[in-house]
Design a protein around this nucleic acid. Structure first.
Lengths: 169, 169
DNA sequence: TCGAACTATTTCAAATTTCAATGATCTTCG
DNA sequence: CGAAGATCATTGAAATTTGAAATAGTTCGA
């Protein structure tokens, strides 16, 4: 006796789980997102309260600190994962504050390279140390084993995501 | 023969690890952040391309979809982890599009409750299904064991962070 | 070498976002 | 009751952010 496609039980399951039961992925995503948001807001608030600097500006300084020879606007945009126009505005404000400078590339005159000034380096050193301390505080109850597992599993997840992007497949 | 504090090797380690060796926390944070950014940008782009809706608007609709009886502006603000003023602007645009409505609370006239319209419910249902599918795609290479471990470990991390916030301890 | 196709950056409009200040309403307590 | 203090939401200014269009410069093939 055949059953399959007309089995009422199967239909019931299908209806309840429309359309493909991806709830667990959604839950994982929401947990990831809310945790990151929580941390982000805490850092934003502390940067403002203690150093009167915004989080996006801190992020940009951090990129330049890691690349002392400077970065092109486009590279900054890619590394920060924000739009080109966004970087232009941030750079303008930081240049006004004398924390960075813009230099034209003599070889390719379309290219602009931004780098930290000595003042920018000095100030970021201070911000950066505090920032690391805040993270260590917030992660204090995460034991090393858990942290290590997270590093590994997040690498897996990041790889999966990167492999399934619409654009940069 | 005593050694300890004058041991050159120990000093070397200390110097290299100034000021308190929180590099591993920083690395974990950056990995978390970049992964979430990658996913966020992908979802933002797909929402725009396929449904002509912005990510913040989708997020707000999602909150209201989970609370069919409606939410106060302040609750929306807390759940979305954004400022009060931000929610006001988002709600105004969504109200213009007839996706949500605002009602005064008859008991407490300071309170405003936002809820989905039937149109909002119908449209969000479509957006939501697509959204879940995109997540499932992006997480396709994350095996269930890894996913389960991530759920658990992210709960630990979220708890640690929540316990060490400046504000809402 | 000319011009079409690319590439790097800026510009612009609209939306988002924060933070502080304001307005309106409630609550409490003398 | 009635004012001080607390709560809820909006407003306004400045910064951030996106996405598309515009600018300027480079490259490469006919």
């Amino acid at each position: 006796m055949e059953k399959a496609k007309d089995d009422p039980v199967d239909l019931e399951i299908i209806v309840r789980d429309e359309p493909a039961g991806h709830k667990s992925e959604l839950r994982l995503w929401l947990r990831l997102l809310s945790t990151v948001n929580m941390i982000t807001q805490e850092i934003r608030q502390r940067l403002r309260a203690e150093f009167a600097i915004t989080l996006p500006q801190f992020d940009l300084l951090a990129q330049l600190d890691r690349a002392r020879e400077g970065l092109r606007m486009g590279d900054l945009s890619k590394r920060m994962m924000v739009s080109n126009g966004n970087v232009t505005g941030l750079i303008e404000r930081l240049e006004t504050d004398k924390l960075i400078v813009r230099d034209f590339d003599p070889v390719d005159r379309r290219v602009i390279v931004a780098k930290l000034t000595p003042l920018g380096i000095a100030k970021f050193r201070i911000y950066s140390k505090a920032h690391e301390g805040w993270l260590a505080d917030m992660f204090a109850d995460v034991d090393p084993v858990t942290a290590k597992a997270l590093m590994k599993h997040m690498a897996t997840m990041k790889g999966s995501v990167a492999a399934h992007l619409t654009r940069g497949a």
